[in-house]
Amino acid sequence: MASTAPLTSPAARTRHLGDRPVGPGHPVYITGEIGINHNGDLGTALALVDAAADAGCDAVKFQKRTPEVCTPRSQWELERDTPWGRMTYIDYRHRVEFGEDEYRRIDEHCRERGIAWFASPWDVESVAFLEKFDLPAHKVASASLTDDELLRTLRATGRTIVLSTGMSTPKQIRHAVEVLGSENIVLCHATSTYPARAAELNLRVIHTLQAEYPNVPIGYSGHETGLQTTLAAVALGAAFVERHITLDRAMWGSDQAASVEPGGLQRLVRDIRVVEESLGDGVKRVYESELAPMRKLRRVPGVVAQADERAERAERGEPAEEAAGARGSDRSDSAGDREPAAV
């Protein structure tokens, strides 16, 4: 999948989710994936919105399905045990879906809390449903990456599309990008196991995707337990991060075990902000805060011509008079810089 194509400018790799830029040079866009961890309960959904807002997430995400479309007909009448008793699978799928009234309340609550929301539509009818709302983006779940009809419908909305790439080959990813168009997508590396083992996260794929899609911001959708590997994804350049969230991992549901509880979510957001600040711009420099320790600890100052020193300071954007003053101060403090005595 790797390509030798050079990376383009950061501006070319920037997308917007609402009024929020996403891409190199911008803060990581952090999404709390609620999915169906609300188990069909509006109160739980609103509590998860609160947890994400309190943690400092940029958005929360849901999943929207039309049960009769997304559930194979052969599975409709299969019975399963649920927290609400034994029921058919199609009844269960309806039980955990929200309708327009619930999403109107979610939309209102997100506005009150100052956090965006969007969703993964799993079928064309669900796209039409979500288009009733002013959303910053749509999400393509990894399972839907091969659904060309859905991808074409999403592209036609004109909204930014976040595309997850779990359970997909490089060829399938290329085809999906061709269908969606690369000009308005965010591409997310993912491993679709719940929870995913560290050995199968393969985070270096983030660099592979960056090389093959130089005009597309690359993100990470994590399904692992723990927080360390998500922070590693940020260090590798992920511009968008998504993790499933829950009020309690012991709650019923297939995604709960791979989800982050409120306390962990607060730590994750905090640490992502620290990591992205620490990455810097890659230009090696001597910081002002290093000068005093340098004078105290460095026994041999080194040989640097004044012209070279001035050039280095100019590259750092320091005015010439500041450089001269700093040099004068340095020279007065260092015996190694004094002119040799006449002999």
Rank of each mutant, 00 (worst) to 15 (best):
K296A: 14
W122F: 15
A198F: 12
I161K: 03
S278P: 08
V49L: 04
E315V: 13
L227W: 05
K139T: 03
R331G: 00
D54K: 07
I36P: 00
L17S: 02
R316I: 07
I115P: 07
A233Y: 03
G317Q: 01
V274Q: 12
V140H: 10
N37A: 02
D81P: 06
W252L: 03
W84T: 00
H16V: 06
L7I: 12
V300K: 11
G40S: 12
K171W: 09
A307K: 15
T71Y: 05
T165Q: 07
Q266L: 08
T153C: 15
D333M: 11
Y220P: 01
Q210S: 00
I245K: 08
H244N: 10
R313P: 01
P67K: 11
I90S: 11
L297C: 01
D54I: 00
E33S: 06
E77C: 03
D147H: 10
L247Q: 10
R249W: 00
S9N: 12
R113G: 08
D248M: 01
P214F: 00
H109N: 01
L279D: 00
Q210V: 05
D255M: 03
E108F: 02
Q306I: 11
M167K: 10
V22S: 02
G263K: 09
A311R: 13
E322W: 13
L145P: 04
L48S: 08
R270C: 07
V286T: 08
A55H: 05
G35M: 04
T157K: 06
D41A: 11
S254H: 10
H138S: 01
H138Q: 07
V269G: 11
V275N: 01
E309D: 12
